[in-house]
Nucleic acid binder design. Structure first.
Length: 824
RNA sequence: GCGGAUGUGGCGGAAUUGGUAGACGCGCAGGCUUCAGGUGCCUGUGGGGGCAACCCCGUGGAGGUUCGAGUCCUCUCAUCCGCACCA
């Protein structure tokens, strides 16, 4: 007998070569073979250095799903690309002078090599990097489509500025007042920037969440981020400046029921009218000083909740539209310009912040909602009947009064029901080099002029100095900046900002559907074939940014007629995988606890690495890496492969007997049980850990010791079934083992179906309880009825002992499971 | 503060509609084989008691519902994550 050793270094490249030579995983858009289409997609990697353990996890999960879909009879699109623009490559260039393109392309080469070594089943014909002109040409085209639809615009606004990265940031990229990338304290700056009008889609982005199959916590995060509030907009009139021309200041409130309790009025320091209002009053200097201080304060300092309330009177007043009372005006930094209208009515009796401010500044506090519990404490933010408001409303429960008051305001023309969102427009321009150029020309005569579509792409020019200087490094490429206006032909300058890389990744899944189209970003027919993505897989860290932006793009493109009918969402199902930690901590170079996939694959092979990472626990949860457990997985695959190789020699060509013996039936039962287990684990919840455990259990029944007198055909069937079920997780070893045992290619085999005849057992282990405690177990026929089971149970010696001297008051029988005697 | 999640052996984790808690694996212990071994194989392994048959305890904690609770209900503790002066 030949000696068999499990050598992944020989097995894995052999099968990888077959798949590459035969282009096994490629799918065309033209096939009309009746198979259902399935689009399985993992989030595209940012190519830096080489793949880390998180990449191994996400692609191991995605590949298992892709294989399962294929063998379940679907035609599967499973592509790969690279999110190749971005700051790390640019920062590397600043340090070393190496062109970001060179370091990025080197990283991509390393990713490609390793993805192939991992045996991931990718259609490589659709591959691209977002930094390639053939891709970003269409990123620019989308930008212009949105620009022409009014969904991309330029305006001056208070924006978030990272002093280290020397660029503006989107709100979504500021975490606790710090730059998400580099951790620097973010500053506020007044700058003219490019925005996408994502706020136009706030409502649809919110309501359409109900129709997609995403983890609830991700939906919740998006709902919180969009932050819808229902309330009313109410105008407060100021007649102090010029009684002939009063100014109406609208405020947004979620509590119009408390309007009668308003005792003062507050504006944000950024409010454009603050200085004008204070001018000429005794408070003018104090206001100017306060505003200046607020504007230079960091977002973190200003947002500190423990900070005492500050503010300055404006020396002016507004009129409360519901009762004509004059309310003093203040400027205070607890009011935010970005939310609502930048001004609020303050109701200290029923709002904690207003209460704190009123106490600090000695302002009146007027209760207008009674507390049904009778507590006199203020502020009171609960519900109750209105008091001291207006005869028409007093006594009404406040929720009812709210509607009545809004109706009244509406009739009087003083306000109306209103909805406010926390979501703000997406700031997309960046003062950085390594990104997609914004295809706009500035012409002194014509203003902003889009670059005509036939002139796309606007190529990113090469430059000498990548260091940011507060303006885009592109500005230094003077020959490139100088151009002619496409409209009037006069001298003009190119836009020198580049796009946020999240723009690139907001549509890449569309391009995969039609990656080699030179005429258009895609054809609608190609999208209709694949979109939406059936299963999207990635890290939860993208729960807001990427996943919200991509949804916005698809909706906006659908409105512009670029999507096939019915496609309103990019990702029908989402799975978020947990992180792999080491010693309980996030892996990082500085901690020195990084596990390199390359080293693991080198030592144990890709199958071991992939199986281990799926076996470690439920893939949506964080899991801690264990070196010894990896070795355990290698031992299992070795044992398994060796057993198959030996069996292939010894048991060749034996069929399963028509009337298998007792030991064979046990194996056939276990095999069908495993089919059932693995299939259901692949379905809803991606319980790959239990799927692999089921294959292990099946294999444990097949060891020479356990087989007993089973015939060779049944043993071979058991092993081949195990190989077939293991294929989505360990494709190389499984393909090899399956081929040795059967001569067939496992990926061409349909997913096995369990034979119901072998799922039903003839006997089961009856559990016998007395007062809910297990006292014995006895084998019982599967079809035994209630009386038979009770008789069997009563006969057990330990049961007799526990029933002795007691009265049985109840007998509970669960057929197929247990008997419980309740005794006194 | 608001929202979301998670608590099960030494460790990672299993456990259909409430019905045998601890599958599978790691680790550990003992044995066998080989022996230079870090390989391979077998057995055992929640805690406590007992020669044994068995008995008691046990899913973060406290109550409750039930013949029966890891699972359902109430309260509570801990950890993690998201948002946070959003009017």
């Amino acid at each position: 007998m030949a000696e068999h050793r499990y050598e992944p270094k020989q097995i894995e490249p052999r099968w990888q070569r077959v798949w590459a030579d035969e282009r096994t995983w490629e799918v065309s858009n033209d096939e009309a073979d009746g198979r259902e289409a399935s689009y399985v997609l993992e989030m595209l990697p940012y190519p830096s250095g080489e793949p880390h353990i998180g990449h191994l996890k996400v692609y191991s999960v995605g590949d298992a799903v892709a294989h399962f879909h294929r063998r379940s009879g679907r035609r599967v699109l499973h592509p790969m690309g690279y999110d190749a623009f971005g700051l790390p490559a640019e920062n590397h260039a600043i340090q070393t002078g190496q062109h970001p393109r060179d370091s990025t392309d080197a990283a991509i080469a390393s990713f490609q090599r390793q993805f192939r070594e991992w045996g991931i089943s990718i259609d490589w014909t659709r591959e691209f990097g977002t930094h390639e002109p053939r891709y970003y040409r269409w990123t620019q085209w989308i930008f212009l489509a949105l620009y022409e639809a009014g969904l991309a615009y330029r305006k001056e606004a208070a924006v978030k500025w990272c002093p280290v990265d020397q660029t503006v940031l989107a709100n979504e990229q500021v975490v606790d007042g710090h730059c998400e990338r580099c951790g620097a304290l973010v500053e506020a700056r007044q700058l003219e920037q490019w925005f996408f009008r994502i706020t136009d889609y706030a409502d649809r982005l919110l309501t359409d969440l109900d129709g997609i199959d995403w983890p609830e916590h991700v939906k919740t995060m998006q709902r919180n981020w969009i932050g819808r509030s229902e309330g009313a907009e109410v105008a407060f009139r100021c007649e102090d400046l010029d009684p002939a021309h009063p100014i109406d200041y609208p405020v947004f409130t979620t509590r119009p029921d408390t309007l009668f309790g308003a005792t003062f009025f507050v504006m944000a320091p950024e409010h454009p009218d603050v200085l004008r209002l204070a001018a000429g009053t005794e408070h003018e200097d104090a206001v100017r000083e306060y505003v200046n201080r607020s504007l230079t304060e960091s977002a973190q300092e200003r947002g500190d909740l423990d900070k005492e309330k500050t503010g300055v009177p404006l020396g002016r007043s507004v009129v409360n539209p519901v009762n004509g009372e004059r309310l003093p005006m203040y400027v205070a930094d607890y009011v935010l310009m970005e939310y609502g209208t930048g001004a609020i009515m303050a109701v200290p009796a029923h709002d904690e912040r207003d209460h704190a401010f009123a106490v600090r500044f000695g302002l009146p506090i007027r209760r207008v909602i009674a507390d049904p519990e009778g507590s006199g404490e203020l502020p009171y933010t609960g519900d109750g009947p209105l008091v001291d408001s207006h005869p028409d409303f007093d006594g009404l429960p406040n929720r009812e009064a709210l509607g009545a008051i809004v109706d009244w305001l509406d009739r009087e023309g003083k306000g109306h029901a209103s909805v406010n969102y926390r979501l703000r427009d997406w700031l997309l321009s960046r003062q950085r080099y390594w990104g997609c150029p914004i295809p706009i020309v500035h012409c002194d005569a014509c203003g902003l002029v889009p670059v005509p579509a036939e002139q796309l792409p606007v190529l990113l020019p090469d430059i000498e100095d990548y260091a940011p200087k507060g303006r885009s490094p592109l500005a230094a490429a003077e020959d490139w900046v100088r151009t002619t206006c496409p409209r009037c032909g006069g001298p003009a300058r190119r836009e020198t900002d580049t796009m946020d890389t999240f723009v690139d990744s907001s549509w890449y899944f569309l391009r995969y559907c039609d990656a080699s189209n030179d005429e258009a970003a895609w054809s609608k027919e190609a999208l209709a074939r694949w979109m939406p993505v059936d299963q999207y897989i990635g890290g939860v860290e993208h729960a807001i940014l990427h996943l919200l932006y991509a949804r916005f793009f698809v909706k906006a493109l659908a409105d512009l007629g670029h999507m096939p009918d019915g496609v309103q969402e990019p990702f029908a199902r989402l799975f978020t995988q947990g992180m792999i930690t080491k010693d309980g901590a996030k892996m990082s170079k500085s901690k020195g606890n990084v596990v390199s996939p390359r080293e693991i694959v080198e030592r144990f092979g890709a199958d071991t690495a992939r199986c281990y990472i799926l076996f470690i626990g439920p893939p949506d949860q964080d899991a801690d890496w264990s070196d010894s457990a990896v070795e355990g997985m290698f031992r299992f695959l070795s044992r398994f492969w060796r057993a198959c190789a030996v069996a292939a020699d010894e048991l060749a060509d034996h069929p399963v007997l028509d009337e298998p013996g007792e030991d064979a039936v046990r194996i056939l039962r276990k095999a069908n049980w495993a089919i059932e287990r693995v299939t259901s684990a692949m379905g809803g919840r991606f319980a790959f850990n239990t799927a692999i455990a089921a294959v292990m259990e099946l294999f444990n029944e097949l060891t020479p010791e356990r087989r007993g007198a089973a015939d060779p055909g049944s043993v071979r069937f058991g092993l081949a079934t195990a190989a077939s079920l293991l294929f989505p997780f360990a494709p190389h070893a499984s393909a090899d083992a399956h081929h040795r045992l059967t001569g067939a290619r496992v990926w061409e085999e349909p997913w096995p179906a369990a034979d119901p005849a072998y799922l039903e057992a003839e006997e089961f282990e009856l559990v016998v309880q007395v007062n809910g405690k297990v006292r014995d177990r006895v084998s019982a026929p599967a079809d035994a009825d209630r009386d038979a089971l009770l008789a069997l149970a009563r006969d057990r010696p330990n049961v007799i002992a526990h029933l002795d001297g007691h009265e049985v008051v109840k007998e509970v029988v669960v057929p197929g499971r247990l008997v419980n005697f309740v005794v006194r």
